[in-house]
């Protein structure tokens, strides 16, 4: 690399990294499909797996009946989160490395995200009003992220996560 062009190697490196990510994402599609179809088959759930390739990973919609959908989502999304986490781990075991994997059943994630955003807005008003810190219910990392993001759009508040493991939750403070 010629040292006279300090920017060139950097951008080369970045685009190589991006190409590599795109390649890994493409390679991950059949792996993810086969893993999910087999696990869901062994769970006795009839399901159609739709996989969308996105910039930073894969989005998988699991299409099934409402009853089976409820089973796949689980309590507060526990089953869906578990399946999503295992999918990520399987990709690492296959040497495909890190990427974003989201699983959804019947728009559950989208609906839940809307509910969380609404909750965040109500809580923000309350905390701005009375100045007392507000502790959310414990949530998964993904859900906490939604709350942190929603709160970051509001001036005069800051958020932290407190507690360990399944007690980890978002706390909102007035600045």
């Amino acid at each position: 690399m010629p040292p006279t062009e300090p920017n060139a190697p950097m951008s080369d490196q970045n685009s190589r990294k991006d190409d590599d990510l795109q390649q890994r994402i493409t390679d991950a599609v059949p792996v993810v499909r086969s893993f999910l179809e087999t696990v869901l088959g062994l769970l006795g759930v009839e399901v159609e797996v739709d996989i969308d390739v996105e910039d930073d990973g894969l989005h998988c919609d699991l299409n099934t009946s409402d009853e089976e959908g409820g089973l796949l989502i689980g309590r507060h999304g526990a089953t869906l989160d578990a399946l999503q986490y295992l999918t990520l781990r399987v990709l690492q075991a296959e040497g495909l490395g890190r990427m974003r994997i989201t699983l959804d059943v019947g728009g559950y994630r989208t609906r839940r995200e809307r509910v969380l955003r609404e909750m965040a807005e109500n809580v923000a008003k309350k905390v701005l009003d009375n100045g007392r810190p507000y502790h959310f219910e414990p949530m998964s990392a993904m859900e906490r992220r939604v709350v942190h993001m929603a709160m970051s759009e509001i001036d005069g508040l800051r958020t932290e996560s407190e507690g360990e493991g399944r007690r980890r939750h978002v706390v909102v403070f007035r600045d």
């Binding site: 062994l42 769970l43 006795g44 089973l71 089953t79 578990a82 399946l83 986490y85 295992l86 781990r89």
Partner: peptide, 24 residues
């Protein structure tokens, strides 16, 4: 380590899937 995971996350995830299957 691969089946236990960091802070037991992988085995927890397997238990969650197992719960769904066994509830059926």
């Amino acid at each position: 380590g691969k089946v236990i995971g960091k802070q037991g996350r992988t085995v927890k995830a397997m238990r969650a899937i197992l719960n769904a299957a066994s509830s059926k």
